[in-house]
């Protein structure tokens, strides 16, 4: 369960990213956060992952107020989240396998078990056989799948994706959208921040529409 209670995020002196935002997301739900550029979509995801802290209000993840987490506790919160970034943040000097292995290495998985999980994640996103390739050798769609594989390899309970279909052609974007649907169907809570929600329309997700940091009813 994710719950925002009157959450505001301000950037001094006068910037307001979120303004008294309240909503909740049930476990296993697929939720789209939409709105124009600058509406506050990315800020919502950053607050859930404790990348930023709210200026006011409470952000509850699994009953835990992540806005007030102490620094040493933040890594353990993030290990239960799968993060897909707008700029993907792939390591271009590492192979596909090593990129996906990174979260497991961080979490301290034994190498043998980690390797098994990486192979399973590669299967899930259709990248099996590309383990040794460098990200630069992948197409845009494959790079996005790699980013998704890295996000899900730790089998997180919550998947947060920021514009995961941006810069992809319609066919590839559709395939990527279907991958998120697959994860939601196995019980993962999925929050996707996107400007283009038409791709996800067939899955009938719940939509949260933001405008200037406020939820539009």
């Amino acid at each position: 369960m994710i719950r925002f209670e009157q959450v505001s995020r301000r950037y001094p002196p006068a910037g307001v990213a979120l303004d008294g935002l309240s909503f909740s997301v049930a476990p296993g739900e697929l939720v789209l956060i939409t709105g124009h550029s600058g509406a506050g979509k990315t800020t919502v995801l950053k607050l859930i992952a404790a990348i930023e802290r709210p200026s006011a209000g409470a952000v509850l993840v699994g009953g835990q107020d992540v806005g007030h987490l102490k620094r040493p506790a933040i890594p353990f919160l993030r290990r239960n989240l799968g993060l897909i970034f707008q700029d993907q943040k792939l390591l271009f000097d590492r192979s596909v396998f090593e990129n996906i292995m990174l979260p497991l290495a961080i979490a301290g998985f034994p190498p043998k078990e980690a390797a098994g999980r990486v192979r399973a994640a590669l299967d899930k996103v259709g990248l099996r056989g590309r383990e040794r390739a460098l990200p630069v050798a992948l197409s845009g769609g494959e790079q996005q799948r790699l980013a998704i594989a890295r996000a899900v390899v730790g089998r997180p309970g919550i998947l947060l994706a920021d514009e995961p279909t941006a810069h992809l052609d319609p066919d590839t974007a559709g395939e990527v959208a279907a991958i998120f649907r697959d994860f939601q169907q196995v019980g993962v809570t999925v929050l996707i921040a996107t400007c283009d929600d038409t791709l996800f329309a067939p899955f009938a997700p719940r939509r949260l529409v933001l405008d200037h940091g406020k939820l539009i009813p």
């Binding site: 890594p75 993030r78 970034f85 943040k89 990174l102 961080i106």
Partner: peptide
Amino acid sequence: RAEIELSRLLGATDAF
């Protein structure tokens, strides 16, 4: 720097 920043986002502790 890029790897360090990413590692933090993926749940790496300071010790790691």
